[in-house]
Simulated scan of single mutants.
Amino acid sequence: MKTLDRAELITVTGLVTGAAGLLIQKVAGVEMPVVPPGMIILLVVAALMAATRWRWTPVLAVLAALAEVAGFVGSLADADAFGEFAGASVRGAGITVALVAGIAAAIGNYRSRKSAAPAPTR
């Protein structure tokens, strides 16, 4: 297992928080599939970030968070009960954190990779 830098750790935390928000919504009675696909996507990307050394996993995190934005906006608009609103709020906070930190992690990975490249020879 690799060690995560700060931006990657925050991204993973945001992804897991977004998945937890989906679970809260499910328990609160929001209609969704038995296993919500968004939850699976968020958790798989979080696991990939935590377990692999692939430098582009933060880009996947950003894409997963962007994919959840539409679902989040719809669920927040339809939240009638406290549990539904709480789940939507946790979900929104998680995907927002994952989106911002994922962008920072992707930029950091790109910069560190670029600075580690060998200097061109003459």
Score class of each variant (00 low, 15 high):
Ala64Gln: 03
Ala64Met: 02
Phe72Gly: 07
Ala93Thr: 14
Ala106Thr: 06
Arg122Cys: 01
Ala77Met: 12
Ala105Cys: 11
Ala117Pro: 06
Ser89Tyr: 01
Ile103Val: 15
Ala47Ile: 12
Ala65Ile: 02
Thr52Asp: 01
Ala79His: 05
Gly38Ile: 01
Arg113Leu: 11
Val73Tyr: 12
Val97Cys: 07
Pro33Ser: 00
Arg91Ile: 00
Val35Thr: 09
Thr96Pro: 06
Ala93Asp: 07
Lys2Ser: 08
Val27Gln: 11
Ala98Glu: 04
Leu66Tyr: 04
Ile40Cys: 11
Met32Glu: 07
Asp80Ser: 12
Ala61His: 05
Arg91Tyr: 13
Leu22Trp: 08
Ala47Gly: 10
Leu66Val: 15
Leu4Tyr: 04
Glu84Ala: 15
Ala50Gln: 04
Arg91Cys: 07
Asn109Thr: 08
Ala7Arg: 10
Glu31Asp: 13
Lys114Gln: 14
Arg6Ser: 11
Val27Leu: 13
Met49Asn: 08
Val44Gly: 05
Leu76Val: 10
Ala77Val: 12
Lys2Val: 13
Arg113Thr: 15
Leu63Asn: 02
Ile95Asp: 04
Val59Cys: 02
Ala81Met: 09
Gly108Glu: 04
Gly74Tyr: 05
Asp80Trp: 06
Ala117Trp: 04
Arg53Asp: 12
Leu48Pro: 00
Ile95Gly: 00
Thr121Lys: 15
Ser112Asp: 15
Asp5Trp: 04
Ile41Ser: 11
Lys26Leu: 13
Ala61Ser: 09
Leu22Thr: 11
Ala117Gln: 14
Leu66Glu: 02
Ala65Val: 03
Glu31Pro: 14
Gly71Cys: 09
Met49Arg: 03
Pro36Met: 09
Thr11Met: 07
Ser75Trp: 02
Gly83His: 01
Leu60Tyr: 01
Asp78Arg: 12
Trp54Pro: 00
Trp54Ser: 06
Pro58Val: 03
Asp80Thr: 12
Pro58Thr: 06
Thr17Tyr: 00
Ile10Glu: 06
Ala64Gly: 05
Val27His: 08
Glu84Arg: 14
Leu76Lys: 10
Glu8His: 09
Pro37Ser: 11
Val69Pro: 02
Arg91Trp: 14
Ile24Asn: 02
Phe72Tyr: 09
Gly87Asn: 05
Thr96Asn: 09
Ile41Glu: 11
Ser89Glu: 05
Ala93Glu: 08
Leu60Lys: 03
Val100Thr: 13
Met1Asp: 13
Thr13Ser: 14
Gly94Tyr: 07
Leu63Val: 15
Val12Ile: 10
Val62Lys: 01
Leu43Val: 08
Val12Phe: 01
Gly14Ala: 07
